[in-house]
Nucleic acid binder design. Structure first.
Lengths: 244, 244
DNA sequence: TAGGTTCGGTGGTTGGACCACTGAACCACT
DNA sequence: AGTGGTTCAGTGGTCCAACCACCGAACCTA
């Protein structure tokens, strides 16, 4: 029995500033407020929304961190075009904005991951030290206390460290957030848990042998697998309960 | 007339919460505060630093947006390991943290860009519409009011839109921030301005012909060029005034 | 006309207060 | 001893009211 693709809603009650931030984010992304326009003054918004100015400021700060608005002392907050300046983190808000997982965005993420992570593994195989390798060995063979997903995240993390490239590391952190949000789509199938363990051992061998081409190939193979299986999951759920 | 009791500190150009945020960021990244430790309470920090609690909160919110700390109601703010959770945006703070451009980080960025952007161009060449192409044509041939660097950013932006992948778009935005910060390293040489214009026309032709392989090759070529030239720039400056 | 000044509106900061949440210590009951 | 509920001190979240710092435009003044 396959349930429809659902969004796991954390039961945390939203903070007030988060609710307001979400409202404003929607208004901006949906185009209800246009690029270049100015937001009302903080005092005005606070009054209209019936909340304190500090709460509004908190929400605005969040939007600013997503590069959706620019706050300037003495001037106000102006809307920026999220397509031209939106930050990677913005995608995390967009992917479930309409109450379900946006398939286009998720597949787009997997597409970029498919390009980037094998290259990272290749660099890791070239640059890894013996200390790095020991860490990877522990993660692959002696981390039974971890769930398979957490072990997978750890393995990737160690590979990112091996690559000696800080950008790979933070981009992987970015991907891992999605993994924790939507990884159940993959790991709820026991066969994939087995696949994952086989992959860990294969990538370990390739990196141990300092074989970049092999490491890249192994990584690419598993990501191709994931991409295909996630796509199938979507197709299945569409066939069952999709809307016309 | 009685002056206010408050003792004013010397005023700095940057915002107070930004200064405090920078201090805390340094303490975290440099390991002066260890992962897992708790930050002092907001009230305590505000008292110790001689600022208002709202100012401290603003700084903490920023650190939270970089995923350096986790703020929890009733508990406090705990330090996270930035290597395990730090966001891409964090790199922008790290790259110039020690008063100069960190060459390793910059080269790491160029390395990832070299992988990702040609693939983006390939997808763009496959998926572009005629409307997209018109936009690109305008950017390449009829945007004399823009600086070469801004035109280059615009060209890349249009290609990202063509790729129909939101993640490419926001990652490109991320790269563009560095371009605006450090692009002068490339564009201050007039020969590179010429190179850039030739590149724009070449990528336009490849995309017009819907030739993914060609688009990828053209993009890879120019990025290889940039990587090499930036590396030379660093080597030169090292040979001239570097420390032994 | 050019340059300085004033002024209203905006975000930034302040101080103080209360509400909501957390974990631990405590207590009563089994 | 173990279980479950209560209290309590400490923390972040929100509120209020006021003032400071900054910006652009409108207004002088030479």
């Amino acid at each position: 029995m396959v349930a429809s693709i659902r969004v796991k809603r954390p039961l945390n009650r939203s903070r007030l500033h988060e609710e307001i931030g979400d409202i404003l984010l929607r208004d901006i992304v949906k185009g209800r407020i246009h690029t270049g326009e100015r937001l009302p003054a903080e005092r005005e918004m606070a009054h209209d929304l019936g909340v304190n100015r500090a709460t509004v400021r908190s929400a605005l700060k969040w939007l600013e961190s997503l590069d959706l608005i620019e706050i300037r002392h003495g001037l106000g907050a102006v809307i920026k075009d999220y397509r031209e300046s939106g930050s990677p983190e913005l995608i995390r808000s967009l992917i479930t904005m309409d109450g379900h997982i946006d398939e286009d965005i998720l597949m787009g993420i997997l597409e970029v991951r498919r390009i980037m992570v094998p290259q990272m593994a290749s660099a890791a195989a070239s640059l890894r030290t013996d200390t790095d390798l020991k860490d990877l060995e522990d993660a692959v063979f002696h981390s039974s206390e971890l769930s398979v997903m957490e072990r997978d995240i750890l393995v990737h993390h160690i590979i990112a460290v091996m690559s000696n490239n800080l950008l790979y590391l933070v981009l992987l952190n970015f991907f891992n957030k999605f993994m924790r949000d939507f990884g159940y789509l993959y790991f709820e199938d026991d066969r994939n848990i087995l696949r994952s363990q086989e992959f860990h051992q294969a990538i370990y061998e390739a990196i141990k042998k300092k074989n970049p081409k092999k490491a890249k190939k192994v990584m690419d193979g598993v990501l191709e697998d994931v991409e295909r299986l996630i796509r199938e999951t979507f197709n299945k759920s569409q066939g069952q309960g999709g809307t016309p």
